[in-house]
């Protein structure tokens, strides 16, 4: 039986890096969810298929529980099990928390956090004993970041969801953990207001002297998914030492 993995928000950035790293690790079938950017998804699909990996693109909007159910129905037509599930999809508005409107709060929460719960629930029958789940969070869940309140709060809730699911699903032999990433550079640089200033400040405070890359995050996510067998409900912080300074 081949190894399979489902990745939400897997067409670019961290999700894409996790897809490529899992392929390298021997996963033979990747089911990759994304919102709308077909060309980006197609490029990744071609890259993976050239390496002999089976790819199933899943264009479903995770803000809608009904679409997540449809996605799970589709996943079931392609596989009878999932070895790994990585939740990367997120969406936000960068502004002070006290200016976030109720509909904006709901959308950020629904895409970034509620969808994680619903995706796990809808695929639970496919996650067998020995399978693993990882959720991607960010350091803004634990400390103040300018203009990051909406997603910061959503990520705190995501981490709590990881802990609860980890304990509940450990009884079924499913391991759930998370990674907490600091700011990533290059194409993954967030669209913060005054981003140059934010990068300068972040670099000054980062002992490692650089921003992260999607590959840095993928490396640890894949470790949690495939090797950290005694790790349950934990989060690994990856930020070049930023949170220590």
């Amino acid at each position: 039986m081949g190894r399979t993995a489902l990745i939400t928000g897997g067409s670019r950035g961290v999700g894409r890096a996790i897809a490529l790293a899992l392929a390298k690790d021997g996963v033979d079938h990747l089911l990759i969810n994304y919102l709308e950017q077909d060309a980006t998804m197609r490029a990744l699909q071609e890259e993976l298929e050239n390496d002999g990996i089976r790819v199933t693109p899943l264009r479903y909007n995770l803000s809608q529980p009904d679409e997540i159910r449809q996605m799970a129905d589709s996943v079931r037509t392609h596989t009878d099990h999932l070895d790994h599930l990585a939740h990367c999809a997120a969406l936000t508005t960068f502004k002070p928390l006290h200016q976030v409107k109720p509909n904006q709060w709901d959308l950020v929460m629904n895409v970034s956090t509620r969808s994680f719960l619903v995706v796990v629930q809808q695929h639970l029958d496919l996650l067998k004993v020995g399978s693993s789940v990882v959720a991607v969070s960010s350091t803004g869940s634990q400390r103040f970041n300018q203009n990051y309140g909406a997603l910061g709060v959503a990520k705190s809730a995501l981490e709590s969801t990881v802990r609860y699911l980890a304990v509940e699903l450990a009884l079924k032999g499913i391991r759930v953990n998370g990674v907490i990433s600091g700011m990533l550079g290059g194409d993954s640089l967030p669209l913060f207001p005054e981003i140059e200033e934010v990068v300068k400040y972040t670099l000054q405070r980062t002992p490692a002297g650089r921003l992260g890359t999607p590959e840095d995050v993928a490396e640890v996510a894949v470790f949690l998914l495939t090797r950290a067998q005694w790790m349950v409900g934990q989060h690994v912080i990856l930020d070049g030492g930023y949170c220590l300074t």
């Binding site: 709308e36 909007n61 809608q64 969406l91 709901d106």
Partner: peptide, 22 residues
């Protein structure tokens, strides 16, 4: 704001059963 347009778009897609193209 742009996130509101996304929110409205998602609500319209869900209500009328079609997808906006990117």
């Amino acid at each position: 704001e742009s996130i509101d347009i996304l929110d409205i778009r998602f609500a319209i897609e869900s209500r009328f059963g079609f997808k906006f193209q990117n």
